[in-house]
Design a protein around this nucleic acid. Structure first.
Lengths: 193, 193
DNA sequence: CTTTTTATATACCGAACGGTATATTAATCT
DNA sequence: AGATTAATATACCGTTCGGTATATAAAAAG
């Protein structure tokens, strides 16, 4: 691993463990066995490092989501597929996933929030699109596409959050496809099924 | 308003806007028109100020939740009531509500997270209890009480989060009872109703 | 009317913050 | 081989951080 990638990995681990604001540049380079000018050489600033990290990891997930929404015929199928993709993204790097969520919930004026927001807006709008295309078929939707989109993303996330609270270190194996299906079912059909 | 309460209010506003870590003690006392020793006189430390703030505001909400869960006969009724209570808590002080959520999603090693966690654990366990009592009646539950509890809290929160994203400053009036009922219905019966 | 307690301010502490000017080494190009 | 560029380090910048030693004003208690 080259030093650029090493710095990103170390930064991710520290941002996840202690939070973006609470981590010093000094701390990052020390963990990597390097010095500050090297970090500034590659990323220009602390926020530049975070932005590069987000861009590198988030874009693939986002394009998968957009493909799934674009190709989806039935809303059920699309939601199952979105559940799978999101879960895979979580499994790929739990620390990164949880870091992103932490950034999303940080204060509006925080530059870390501003760095992560565009990605979530894009994700959200993709999911809205999926419900929008179904609006004609579901008579009762009545403009609730946005509520459904955020509700769906929230449900998926809540489940992953629970998983992670129970087992942050991935010790009990990956999440099965049936489990995701069960969560998506819960969203679509409620708790009385 | 005495200076103690004034400091808590100023701290809340700043923590909400900029995040706990990003706010300096100096900044808080300047907004309050006071000086640092006064803050340390009342709260001992920056984290002590946050803890006092959380204790003061969270405890009432928590006791309302516990009452509702204890008194609830039917799970539907209990969930509607919990929806109302949570929504009222949100309306009471949106800034504080969003601050709490931000703290909940901050890193595990962060002392602000450790300060807020116990309250959420208590909240979560109360809701688990509500589902647990219904476990006999709903044949399909099969140990999914925890998933339902976190899913329910997540659904409520997602809705309030959407509200707040749309209208952070409460300009379009309070959330009606029918709206909350609609969200709780979505959780219980899914999206095809 | 003292004495004590409560509440506030001035002025400071060492440490850590993000960031940089400058030098040096290692690799690449001509 | 010589020139250039890429990658790294040493040593430093001013600022802000959370926190405190000490003094003082105001209020309460005796």
């Amino acid at each position: 691993m080259n030093n650029r990638a090493l710095l990103m990995e170390c930064a991710k681990e520290l941002f996840y463990a202690k939070g973006y604001d609470a981590v010093g540049v000094q701390e990052i380079v020390e963990r990597a066995g390097l010095t500050k000018p090297t970090l500034y050489y590659y990323f220009g600033s602390k926020i530049g490092l975070l932005k590069t990290l987000l861009e590198t990891r988030f874009e693939r997930y986002l394009s998968q989501v957009e493909t799934a929404v674009g190709a989806g015929s039935d809303i059920r199928e699309t939601l199952y597929r979105l559940g799978e993709i999101s879960c895979a993204f979580y499994e790929e790097d739990r620390q990164f996933y949880m870091l992103m969520m932490a950034l999303l919930y940080s204060a509006r004026k925080n530059e870390a929030y501003q760095a992560v927001r565009p990605y979530f807006v894009e994700l959200y709008e993709s999911v809205v699109q999926a419900f929008e295309r179904e609006a004609g078929k579901l008579g009762n939707m009545r403009g609730r596409q946005r509520q459904f989109a955020i509700g769906f993303l929230g449900t998926i996330h809540q489940y992953l959050f629970l998983q992670w609270e129970t087992d942050p270190e991935e010790s009990s194996g990956k999440i099965g496809g049936e489990q995701i299906a069960s969560v998506v079912d819960q969203f679509m059909y409620g708790i009385f099924t």
